[in-house]
Design a protein around this nucleic acid. Structure first.
Lengths: 222, 222
DNA sequence: TAGTGTCCTGAACATGCGTTCAGTCGTGGA
DNA sequence: TCCACGACTGAACGCATGTTCAGGACACTA
């Protein structure tokens, strides 16, 4: 297995962390052994514990590293002004693939650091959308917070389901070609909507109907 | 830990499977022990292997069970005619929470059975959207397949990120209240679009610009 | 009653795990 | 030159794991 390491002059500690970032999402927590990580990094198992204290310590360090990297990359994108909310996918392009994969794994497993990141991204998304609303760029909604959650979840879905998107599109979802294709389709959806105006009304009715249906029937097997 | 089991008159085999469906997403594959599953189901560890052959066999059986359940539920919804594409979330409501959680875990981990399901759902989504296009309910797109992938990924994002959506909304994302709230926001986005008409043009320009930017810069650390 | 097959168990085994520890090596300051 | 210290290793320990196996309990048939 080729590790994330591009330059071989990294610290042993950094090599260990990179190996862990690659291994953990692929093999799971218990499925990843300290011995395997050590072998990837070219060090002894004992050194892993010397630097990170325990397997849990290494996992926490990876969580912090990846989340901080994503956070600062995203923040930098906002500062640079390139990030409209639609620029989320683009910012992912600047992060090395194993890190993006770790982020998706981290989110899907509900790691505390990832949960904090999610909440921050919701807040930031809500702020950006509200600012865009003020400028007349984005439509108004009765539920700004809910909309921010929905939009962010839709974006992060591509991070978590990356593998399936890649397979279904026949191109790397986070490569340039795939990212452009996805963003273009997103802009169609977010720009003019999926439905035609006449269908939008019909859908609203169907939603009401479904609401009543669910209310009276109740769910199965709960 | 209370298992999925509602009625205690299930087969031992079924109890084992239900326990596994609850345990695997929570603890991971290696983190879930046969002894723990056996204890949940109230049987001996040996019986687990008697019925499923091995731990891997149990995992495969769970994958098949959950994927088949989702498949038939979704299919039934289409037959019943309640499922527009927007009805995806609603169909999830009919499936027991542990099964939905297992589905999300299964997708995020790239299980073969889940991958097959994903591809089927893409195909079905593409078919439904094209039919709706014919009837003038859905706008035309230069890339129907890409659009189907994008729409489905956006929907499944809620399944995989369920925990975070629940926390951010302050209500169970797949409970009735949360599901209605999410669907309403989705219908706003898909109905009229997120952007105002004047902003849609601006966004298209930004997309072009980003495209050129990415093309000349290239990514970091690849 | 004897035979047969299914569901099920307790005890045991070999393996691989996370972690510990005593100690080596190399470097830089007093 | 000596010392202190951080990076690093090899060997070992205790433990929990997946799996095996011989057999018990029970129902059903001849």
């Amino acid at each position: 297995m080729r590790s994330v390491v591009e330059r071989d002059d990294l610290t042993a500690e950094a090599r260990i962390r990179q190996a862990a970032i690659t291994r953990f999402p692929a093999e799971g927590i218990e499925g990843t052994t300290i011995r395997a990580i050590a072998a990837d990094a070219g060090v002894s198992p004992a050194l892993v514990l010397h630097h990170f204290g325990s397997k849990q310590g290494l996992l926490d360090a990876c969580d912090r590293y990846v989340v901080d990297l994503v956070r600062t990359t995203k923040t930098q994108a906002v500062i640079d002004g390139t990030a409209t909310d639609s620029g989320f996918m683009a910012s992912m392009y600047r992060i090395a693939p194993p890190v993006v994969r770790y982020l998706g794994w981290s989110l899907s497993r509900g790691a505390p650091a990832a949960a904090r990141l999610f909440d921050e991204l919701v807040a930031e998304s809500e702020r950006l959308l509200s600012a865009a609303e003020e400028r007349g760029l984005v439509r108004r909604t009765p539920d700004p917070h809910g909309r921010a959650v929905v939009v962010l979840t839709m974006q992060l879905g591509f991070v978590v389901l990356r593998e399936h998107v890649t397979r279904a599109l026949g191109m790397d979802a986070f490569g340039m070609e795939g990212l452009m294709r996805i963003t273009e389709r997103q802009m169609e959806l977010f720009g003019t909507g999926l439905f035609t105006p006449e269908a939008a009304r019909e859908t609203a009715q169907a939603l009401d109907q479904a609401s009543r249906l669910l209310a009276q029937e109740g769910p199965d097997g709960r």
